[in-house]
């Protein structure tokens, strides 16, 4: 790196960190995708992870996903919590035998020297009740700080993941805070420049955090949201039914798995908003989670009947792929 490029240094620039990770994983053969154009709670919801994890096809992708957690909003006042933040997501399917080494090298790529930093893999099993998914893995520690989640997907949408996919999720803001040595997310240097040309994370996002916290906790129209939840649920069911292969037809593929899954993502986010508004009681909470999970499962089943889900690889097996 030449001195002109100092502002690209992942230890000084938030976007430098993203670009370095993208370039590192591109070199490992990942397709570098852009964020999915929908509101979601975590990078795992991106169809490039949830749907692509299902079926026999190999798949390697990396992308940044803005993640929305309405309940985590703090009106811009907490230096460590946001209702909108970035995850960097990597999925390798099947997981290569050296996936742990690849991960450690990605840390080295962003400037974490393993001869002075203490990197640890601490048991942390992952489960997403809304996605009907679980896996085993670790939280990855750097000097006592959790910097990534590392999961071997075992089940997604209620289906066994075969082959198993390895998923890496980097919490970008936290990682950047450590690399840049700042105590508040809002103090992160976003573009790596200094002086008047420096842009901080706070300049870009603090106002949004305040506005969205108000929206999420106080003003989001709950009646409308309840209605949207029902609409998304109904739409998902409708697209799933319409996309089903017709009885007696030669083409056994499902034709609308992805539009249906979009509606499941939407239902999940609406549920999170309603939850933040405090209008869902404890008992109802379970039933909403269950409703989203049923959608995710049905979408997973539909995906397995598509080309991306592996049908074209062996058309004679399409029927056998049904749950």
């Amino acid at each position: 790196m030449t001195s002109d490029e100092a502002h690209m240094n992942p230890a000084r620039s938030f976007q430098g960190l993203i670009l370095t990770l993208q370039s590192y994983w591109a070199r490992q053969g990942c397709v570098i995708l852009q964020p999915y154009d929908m509101e979601m709670g975590a990078g795992t919801f991106h169809p490039a992870t949830t749907l692509r994890a299902l079926g026999p096809r190999s798949w390697r992708a990396a992308y940044v996903q803005p993640s929305r957690r309405p309940k985590d909003g703090r009106y811009g006042e907490n230096p460590n919590r946001l209702q909108h933040y970035y995850q960097f997501q990597v999925i390798l399917k099947p997981n290569p035998p050296n996936i742990q080494d690849l991960y450690v090298k990605s840390l080295e790529a962003i400037g974490i020297d393993t001869s002075v930093h203490d990197i640890r893999f601490v048991e942390d099993d992952w489960e997403s009740p809304t996605l009907g998914a679980w896996g085993l893995g670790w939280e990855c520690w750097c000097d006592g700080m959790e910097v990534s989640q590392f999961t071997y997907f075992q089940q997604v949408a209620g289906f066994e993941v075969a082959p198993v996919a390895g998923e890496l999720t980097y919490g970008l803001e936290r990682l950047a805070m450590y690399l840049q040595g700042v105590e508040s997310i809002y103090d992160l240097n976003f573009n790596g420049l200094e002086g008047d040309r420096k842009v901080t994370y706070g300049e870009i996002f603090k106002q949004a955090e305040q506005e969205y916290s108000r929206h999420n906790f106080e003003y989001a129209d709950t009646e409308m949201l309840f209605r949207h939840f029902r609409d998304a649920e109904a739409a998902c069911r409708k697209y799933l039914a319409e996309g089903e292969p017709k009885a007696g037809a030669n083409d056994r593929r499902h034709l609308m798995a992805q539009p249906a899954y979009d509606q499941a993502i939407k239902a999940s986010h609406i549920f999170n908003l309603l939850d933040a508004r405090g209008v869902i009681s404890v008992t109802e909470r379970q039933s909403y989670i269950l409703r989203v999970r049923e959608l995710a499962k049905a979408c997973g089943a539909a995906w397995l009947k598509t080309e991306g889900g592996g049908v074209a690889l062996d058309p004679s097996n399409a029927a056998a792929l049904q749950p």
């Binding site: 896996g135 071997y152 993941v161 075969a162 082959p163 198993v164």
Partner: peptide, 9 residues
């Protein structure tokens, strides 16, 4: 316990 890698196909 878990499965992993290409063998888990």
């Amino acid at each position: 316990s878990m499965r992993w890698g290409a063998a888990s196909r």
